[in-house]
């Protein structure tokens, strides 16, 4: 374990992570149902137009890889902010109802408004995610002890169940919506196209800016609301901005590629283990670890079932759920 105090170790850790992300991104361009040798990848990247693989690389692999980088960073960041905001080690956008809300938004877009265009889904999914996570927060933070982990998790489960049944009702009534929805609901990077990424970019950039803007506030909040207040932080403002950042980042991510669970949950834990509890380090580490995990899972999904592929959402659920359970078991219940 590197020394947590020194700024140079933190920076060199970040550089190492960035190199790892670059390697995984290269792999992600090269690996798939058709393997592309590294020299062809490089020539397609830096002198496009001549190579045999250029089309595959520029039309499919690069948008998918960029989606993995951007969405992974968004999921990692949103998880780190969510856990800092709630001071809750098991906070995850999915557990707190963002996925159920986004799913309902997508179903409403398909069924009520007949929209089959991805860019339209983004707005609806985003609105659904925002409304539902606000409701979960309101219900879970009632009472003197505020938003305790257990209360938030239970409120998330209750409201997700309710919204989920409303989603089911629509899917039951409409076969077209069901057919569209079942592919969205697994969570996959395969459908990512350049225009979709462009539509999502402003939301993600805004969320990332907000997230890095509240770092000081999150550090103060980690000592408790009272201490944060006495340190001169406007607690409500910090909490509101952090929550908005989470909804912008994870809501847009869900809208763009479907619900991908457990990345936002586990990545910040790894970041804290590597970099310590200071959010000035946790956030950048999470923003690099997120793409590493997501692209890694996506590559695994592409090769485990050749010639078909397993969607990245299924891979992260299969790997992430055991990690979640391990966290729950590791702590005594009161600490949770």
């Amino acid at each position: 374990m590197p020394s947590r105090g020194s700024a140079t170790t933190a920076v060199s850790g970040l550089v190492a992570l960035a190199i790892a992300v670059g390697v995984v991104a290269m792999l992600s361009i090269g690996v798939g149902s058709r393997f592309i040798p590294p020299d062809s990848v490089l020539s397609a990247l830096f002198s496009p137009g001549g190579g045999f693989y250029d089309n595959v690389i520029w039309e499919l692999r690069i948008p998918r890889t960029v989606a993995g980088l951007v969405i992974g960073a968004a999921l990692g960041l949103s998880g780190a902010v969510m856990q800092g905001l709630t001071r809750n080690p098991i906070a995850d956008p999915g557990i707190l109802g963002v996925h159920a809300g986004a799913a309902f938004g997508v179903v409403v877009a398909i069924y009520v408004f007949g929209l089959l265009d991805f860019r339209a889904h983004v707005g609806f999914a985003f609105a659904g995610a925002a409304l539902v996570s606000a409701a979960v927060w309101l219900v879970g933070s009632r009472g003197r002890d505020g938003a305790t982990p257990v209360k938030l998790a239970l409120a998330g489960a209750a409201i997700s169940a309710f919204i989920g049944s409303a989603t089911s009702l629509v899917l039951y009534a409409d076969s077209t919506a069901f057919d569209e929805f079942r592919f969205w609901s697994v969570g996959s990077l395969a459908g990512a196209k350049a225009d979709l990424l462009l539509a999502a970019a402003p939301f993600l950039a805004g969320g990332a800016l907000l997230a890095f803007g509240v770092i000081r506030g999150l550090n103060a909040l980690s000592m408790g609301a009272d201490v944060a207040r006495s340190l001169g932080q406007r607690v409500r403002l910090v909490r509101g901005a952090a929550a908005l950042a989470v909804v912008l980042l994870s809501g847009t991510a869900v809208a763009a590629v479907g619900p991908i669970g457990f990345v936002g949950l586990t990545v910040p834990h790894v970041a804290r283990a590597l970099a310590g509890p200071d959010h000035r380090r946790v956030l950048p580490y999470s923003a690099l670890l997120g793409p590493l995990v997501l692209l890694g899972a996506d590559i695994v999904g592409r090769v485990v079932a050749i010639p078909s592929e397993v969607q990245v959402g299924a891979i992260t659920a299969a790997v992430g759920a055991p990690v979640f359970i391990w966290f729950v078991r590791r702590r005594t219940v009161r600490e949770l």
Binding site: I90, G94, I95, V150, A153, A157, R182, F183, S185, V186, G261, F262, V310, Q311, G313, A314, A317, A318, G320, A321, P322, F324, I325, V328, R329, L336
Partner: peptide, 19 residues
């Protein structure tokens, strides 16, 4: 809490098979 985690995993499997 363990139930919530396991349920999330199993539900993920169900949506995968449905797809």
């Amino acid at each position: 809490l363990v139930g919530i985690g396991v349920n999330a995993c199993v539900t993920g499997g169900t949506s995968y098979v449905l797809m």
